[in-house]
Amino acid sequence: VETMGRDNDSYQQAFILLGFSDRPLLEIILFAFILVFYILTLVGNTAIMLLSIMDAKLHTPMYFFLRNLSFLDLCFTTSIVPQLLWNLWGPEKTISYHGCVAQLYIYMVLGSTECVLLAVMSYDRYVAVCRPLHYTVVMHPRLCLQLVTVSWFCGFLNSFVMCPQTMQLSRCGRHTVDHFLCEMPALIAMSCEDTMLVEAFAFALGVALLLVPLSLILISYGMIAAAVLRIKSAAGRKKAFNTCSSHLTVVSLFYGTIIYMYLQPANSYSQDQGKFLTLFYTIVTPSVNPLIYTLRNKDVKGAMKRLLRGEKGAREA
């Protein structure tokens, strides 16, 4: 009983997140870099959410999905960045056992949900470009809500299957995670038992949640490209291209890094490479998403101008 108690105590011990602790100068640079990108993420995504709620012209399926994406990105970075900044700033590199479990669950729910949501958004763009006359009939509010619910369901399902399997692996008293967050590949790599079954599960779910949505995105964009090439007017082609290029850029940034990270065996996983790729898709991508969607978007720029004019008018009154 005493041995079991000791094992249980060590099982619930805090984890040490090594992060970039072997390079103190890099930690200082990363602290400033991550803080700036986190502020951009908070401001950009909050602005998109508020604009799409407050401006009646943005009450369309596209902006309903974009609002959900902004909410996801906001939560995604917030589940990681405060802890990361704390660890980069001071000598303390620990995270409690329950904190690590919570971070893994939240991070996986949000990441998996985003994979499916990006596929849903590509379907929305396909209907807008390929079936414009039927757009409002096909993309009715109930269907939009159902598609977002399915995205969240897939995210929760993946997390509730993989997280317990990852955390239950025997670590033989090891509590040092060679990463800056409690991420599944790094936690699997820490284990002292045979992880082949867990890795096989992770790979199968990775294929289901990464490659299936990505295939649907590529099919949607293949059909969109064919439809755009059939448009006679240059102005019409440009409008269709602008509508889709933002989403395609976001998809490329997000999926490119995640597929490289998750669809390879844990033993071939380069920790340094993994850390920088994770930094990219958890911190850089969510901060540039609002820029990608607004820079080429007249609707959002118009909504911003109307909102600022309204506020100015309100102040003058």
Rank of each mutant, 00 (worst) to 15 (best):
V1H: 12
V1F: 14
T3C: 05
R6E: 01
D9Y: 14
L18R: 12
G19W: 03
S21L: 04
D22R: 12
R23P: 09
L26T: 11
L26S: 13
I28M: 14
I28W: 00
I34N: 03
L40A: 15
L42Q: 15
L42T: 06
T46Y: 10
M49V: 15
I53Q: 04
A56Q: 13
K57Y: 05
K57P: 02
H59L: 04
H59E: 09
P61D: 09
P61C: 06
N68K: 12
L69W: 07
L72D: 08
T77I: 14
S79L: 07
Q83N: 14
Q83L: 02
L85C: 09
L88H: 11
L88K: 13
P91Y: 15
I95P: 09
S96M: 06
G99Q: 04
A102I: 06
L104E: 04
L110P: 09
L110D: 02
L117T: 07
M121S: 03
Y126S: 06
C130N: 13
P132A: 11
P132C: 12
H134M: 15
Y135M: 02
Y135K: 15
V137A: 12
M139Y: 05
P141H: 11
L143W: 13
C144T: 13
L147C: 05
L147V: 13
V150Y: 10
W152L: 08
C163I: 08
P164F: 09
P164M: 09
T166A: 10
M167K: 03
C172A: 11
G173R: 10
D178N: 09
E183L: 10
E183R: 04
P185R: 05
A189L: 15
S191V: 07
C192Q: 05
M196F: 12
M196D: 01
L197P: 01
A200E: 06
A200L: 14
F201V: 00
G206Y: 12
V207E: 03
P213E: 08
P213N: 10
S215T: 14
S220F: 14
S220E: 06
Y221F: 15
M223W: 10
A225Y: 09
A226Y: 06
K232F: 13
K232G: 02
A234M: 09
A240P: 14
N242E: 03
T243P: 02
T243Q: 12
V250M: 08
F254P: 04
Y255R: 03
I258C: 08
I259Q: 07
Y260P: 05
Y262G: 02
P265M: 04
A266K: 06
S268P: 01
S270W: 11
Q271K: 02
Q273R: 00
Q273W: 12
Y281S: 01
I283G: 03
P286L: 14
P286M: 07
P286H: 11
P290Q: 05
P290L: 08
T294M: 01
K298H: 12
D299E: 13
V300Q: 06
A303M: 01
M304V: 15
K305P: 04
G310A: 13
G310D: 00
A317V: 15
